[in-house]
Design a protein around this nucleic acid. Structure first.
Lengths: 253, 253
DNA sequence: AACTATTTGTTCGTATGTATG
DNA sequence: GCATACATACGAACAAATAGT
């Protein structure tokens, strides 16, 4: 290696605002830092508002706004009462995956985009699930299949049954990131399906829809599971897209 | 189809809490609903606190806590002053992808999990990018490659250069969901790399690291691009894992 | 430069709601 | 029922930022 030039005058510095003019941001940052550094464990109680007011030396409004923001971003929950207060949540991806639904509702996502990601990710998830299957998961899958056949009702219960297998496989795959991604995709699909009339659900998702996938996973056959998932998604994604087009067609003309 | 039983007496209803005992939750829900239903466009100003107090018939603290929560979840930004107020943000995935970093810092994600997802997703992203390349993107990629070679400095600037190509490809792929996922993965990688000393960055990421990938994309060769990305990630992910192990080994003994 | 007006940022006193003992 | 400890809520006041005059 020849010469290392440590500085170039045309290098653009990325200026950051020194400090937020807002005290609550500072409070949020300090509490968040304390949480992420492991000072608090899930279930632990943060100091009460009164104590926080004293320790930070700020007004009550600042503390309350900070705690609200931390609650909205999934870090704490708050309860009233003598044993109440702000409690640390077990951090998970639920508030994140819900955000993708908001993006869809705001028109930033399309169904083909969703389908493309599902087809890319979920066959691999099924493959991993098949490689890690055990008896407890086999039982969960069998119950989910039975649920798909048994739920003759419409509405939310049926939708729950439609997506149950996908949720189980996402958890089975043993990768929390994949779990989160699939969770977001399924929630999105759920949201899209929820916009149409319940009688459409039968056309969209017949009983036994997931039999091939689940059976391959239960049998512990990764390759077969991946292919079955791909086949299932090829069909389902097309149906979902057609259904949406019919509905938009009705609405717009 | 034989008979459809619309009701079973043992069907469990999913009861929902009638109302949150918290007024601010109600305010949040109504404002969010107004936003997602398209009543407000990005850049629009929400009513001032004073107006919201009147319209909702609640105290100022409630309004402020609601606005803080909406700010924390990426819906609005707030400014002080005569032309200030709460303004609707262009909804995007930044606050979501940042959440994955928090999950990592909280110890819910491991590097092998991250690597697995990157190897699954990013070759496909490179493939899609190569199929959609145009001159504007070609120029961006060339500048990114030049940046990788030109940045002999350490620290943040170098890290920016290391990830630039990945960000561009994510944007190029034409799928906002994939864009978001890759964004999250790169931010995570960025966070992991940031924990080690800058001199390690050279070992982790040499100049020309992305040449093969970028050239295939610029040439508009999807298959080659995907394979180049896979090869790049195979190497990089292994180096990242080794580096992390070295550092944890130092720390723990 | 000085002043005014508007809007968010912050504090405090007080009162209410909620759940435990 | 009562006392306690906590969050929740209201209202009034002042501070700070920033536009226009």
């Amino acid at each position: 290696m020849e010469s290392v030039i440590p500085y170039r005058s045309d290098m653009k510095a990325t200026f950051q605002p020194i400090r937020s003019p807002r005290i609550s941001e500072e409070v949020i940052a300090q509490i968040k830092s304390a949480i992420l550094s492991g000072q608090y464990q899930p279930g632990d109680k943060l100091p009460s508002e009164r104590e926080l007011i004293e320790q930070f030396g700020v007004g009550r409004g600042v503390i309350r706004e900070a705690l609200r923001a931390l609650e909205a971003t999934g870090f704490v929950t708050m309860r009233q009462g003598p044993n109440g207060g702000a409690f640390l949540k077990e951090l998970n991806f639920n508030h994140l995956t819900g955000g993708f639904v908001d993006l869809y509702l705001a028109g930033k996502l399309t169904i083909p985009e969703l389908n493309q990601v599902r087809k890319l990710v979920e066959p691999e998830v099924a493959r991993l699930a098949a490689a890690r299957v055990n008896d407890a998961y086999r039982e969960q899958l069998r119950q989910a299949l039975a649920g798909e056949r048994g739920q003759f009702c419409d509405g939310d219960d049926r939708m729950q049954g439609m997506t149950r297998v996908h949720f189980i496989l996402a958890e089975m795959c043993g990768n929390y990131l994949l779990h989160a991604i699939v969770n977001a995709m399924i929630k999105l699909t759920h949201e899209i399906v929820a916009t149409v009339e319940p009688q459409e659900h039968y056309a969209l998702h017949g009983a036994g829809e997931h039999d091939a996938v689940a059976e391959a996973v239960i049998a512990g056959q990764p390759q077969r599971a991946a292919e079955a998932m791909r086949a299932h998604l090829d069909q389902f994604c097309q149906k979902l897209l057609n259904m949406d087009r019919r509905y938009r067609g009705q609405a717009t003309g």
